[in-house]
Every structure is written in structure tokens, then in C-alpha cells.
């Protein structure tokens, strides 16, 4: 898994909320699993110091819900799942990013 992101750090920071919400579409994940998934998707190695404040913000906004789960032999983990509000926010956000992509694309002149 690549340590560094495929995009500049500022872009990754700007897109991180939506990237996290997108990673929760398949189902609930705990923080460390989310970090690994984001790394697989090209966002680079995301340290806990960057990830958990984003998750806290999304939880306060009601876009994700969280609960502690007993993990058997290992330490308990906090699982995050996407809420209906989060799903709507993700759809709006992706549409906005698509608009931004369109606006950035320049047609070649004649």
C-alpha cells in the first residue's frame, strides 16, 4: 500500500470528509480499518491524528453514528456507520466535486 497520497496534501485535506463518508458506504468500519481503506484508495497513509478529528466532526454533524464494539481478545473498537443524513451529504458533495471538475476543464480553442 503506498505511503504517500496520489494527490497533493491540500486536495486530500479538502476531500477527506467525503472520502471518509464514501468508505462507510459498504458498511460500518472502525477507525483503523478506515485509515487502511483510504490508503488503498490512494489517499496515502492517514495518521490517527488526522482521521479521528474528521470522524468526530462528522459524528457531531450527524453524518455518521458510532458505537463501541467488544472485539473479543483485542481492545474494544469504535465502529462508525453512515447515517441517512451522511448519505445525502455525500451525494451532494460528490455532485459538487463533479461540478468543480467540469469547471476546471478548459475546451481547446479552434
Amino acid at each position: 500500500m503506498p505511503e504517500t497520497a496520489r494527490w497533493p496534501a491540500a486536495w486530500v485535506r479538502a476531500a477527506l470528509d467525503l472520502a471518509v463518508l464514501g468508505s462507510l458506504v459498504p458498511g460500518p468500519r472502525h477507525g483503523y480499518a478506515l485509515a487502511q481503506e483510504l490508503q488503498d484508495r490512494g489517499f496515502g497513509r492517514l495518521r490517527g491524528g488526522s482521521l479521528y478529528p474528521v470522524l468526530a466532526r462528522l459524528e457531531e454533524a450527524g453524518h455518521v453514528a458510532a458505537g463501541w464494539v467488544d472485539a473479543g481478545s483485542g481492545p474494544a473498537r469504535k465502529d462508525y456507520r453512515l447515517t441517512a443524513e451522511g448519505r445525502a451529504h455525500l451525494a451532494e458533495g460528490l455532485a459538487s466535486w463533479a461540478d468543480l471538475g467540469e469547471a476546471l476543464r478548459m475546451e481547446e480553442g479552434p
Binding site: 477507525g31 483503523y32 495518521r47 491524528g49
Partner: peptide
């Protein structure tokens, strides 16, 4: 602590200084 236990990294390496990590929370 749960994250650090899973990643195997130290808390300082994973989260920075306590002051910088505390500043990230609204």
C-alpha cells in the same frame, strides 16, 4: 489508544503531540 494498539505505532508517532491533537477537536 485503541487505534495505536491496532496500528502498532506509538501514540506520539500516530497522533503528534498531545497539544496539537487536542487542538484538532472542535
Amino acid at each position: 489508544r485503541a487505534h495505536a494498539a491496532r496500528s502498532g505505532a506509538g501514540l506520539r508517532e500516530e497522533f503528534g503531540t498531545p497539544a496539537s491533537y487536542a487542538s484538532r477537536f472542535s
